[in-house]
């Protein structure tokens, strides 16, 4: 809009608001300015103004088509007159177009953009803090053998279920030790408070059919550490023989594997005993699959 045109319209507004006399004849520009001024949300005001301008243009074109002798100025004057009283239109449009939804939409747009940028920035620059504390949607660290679906026990909002039971048999010349692996899943819909690993380790005992027991708050590791003279090198292999580790996880569940090294025979069972103090229960794996590793 030209500055002087805007200034003219403002003076018109002030005169009218002060109870100025008579109906002033407005041109299309002035009519649009006054009619849309009541719409406080700027994008809506611009959109309505464009629409009304198109209406005005159509009316002017129609008048000039029907009355070819009509001058352009007269056609515009008649088109504006047919649009109605600008002040009345202004009142009606102000009633219909409430600004709060527009402001809310604009605020939400910027909030969404800012948050997405922060999220992208954190992931791109791999902030150590977030990497340390993060809970990824899913992950995997070790295999589960002897897949099965045992009974479910629900305690304190957590569901426990055995999902794997296997005796893993390595070749004689392999450095890895044979042993049983009982996998169980802990599920909760409250993904922000999954069961604490330390609490699980302190509460869990693995019992084999031959009577041996392994408390999961400690571990036994089988590994070979090569030496180069006096220099100790990184382990050539590493195996958890007795203990507990998290095998995989999703947003709502964690799968753990409890390891033990009993003398195993086909048909043997194994049992997980949980003692959380206030809650004590057991899960039994009746069928342990024999898995031969190559």
């Amino acid at each position: 809009m030209e500055k002087d045109e805007k200034e003219k319209c403002r003076r018109l507004e002030c005169r009218e608001n002060a109870g100025g006399s008579g109906q002033t004849e407005l041109d299309s520009f002035q009519w649009l300015y006054i009619a849309t001024r009541g719409i406080r949300f700027k994008p809506d005001r611009a959109a309505v103004c464009r629409e009304l301008e198109a209406h005005l243009e159509d009316k002017r074109a129609d008048l000039q088509r029907i009355f070819p002798d009509l001058s352009p100025e007269e056609a515009e004057r008649r088109a504006v007159a047919s649009m109605g009283d600008a002040w009345e239109v202004r009142k009606q449009l102000a009633k219909i177009h409430k600004p709060w939804l527009g402001y809310l939409w604009r605020a939400s747009k910027w909030a969404a953009v800012v948050l997405v940028l922060i999220f992208a920035g954190v992931n791109i620059f791999k902030n150590d803090y977030y990497q340390f504390a993060g809970h990824p949607l899913g992950g995997y660290s070790s295999a589960v053998y002897g897949r099965t679906a045992g009974e479910k026990i629900r305690v304190g909002g957590y569901t426990f279920q055995i999902v794997g039971a296997a005796f893993v048999d390595y070749p004689e010349d392999s450095p890895y030790a044979d042993g049983i692996q009982i996998a169980f899943r802990v599920f909760t819909p409250r993904f922000w408070e999954k069961l604490d690993l330390t609490a699980l380790q302190e509460a869990l005992t693995l019992t084999a059919a031959d009577g041996q027991q392994w408390k999961m708050d400690r571990g036994e590791i089988n590994m070979e550490v090569p030496k180069d003279g006096d220099m100790v090198q990184a382990p050539s292999f590493w195996q958890l023989v007795c203990g507990l580790e998290r095998a995989s996880w999703t947003l709502f569940s964690d799968t753990y594997v409890a390891y033990g090294d009993p003398e195993w025979q086909e048909g043997d069972w194994a049992r997980l005993d949980f003692d959380f103090g206030a809650y004590s229960f057991s899960l039994t794996a009746d069928q342990i699959e024999w898995v031969m590793m190559e």
Partner: peptide, 18 residues
């Protein structure tokens, strides 16, 4: 937009350890 805000905020909350 509100759905995008909630989803992103939830992801950031999770990455910070809830």
């Amino acid at each position: 937009n509100l759905a995008v805000i909630m989803l992103t905020a939830l992801c950031l909350w999770g990455m910070a350890g809830y």
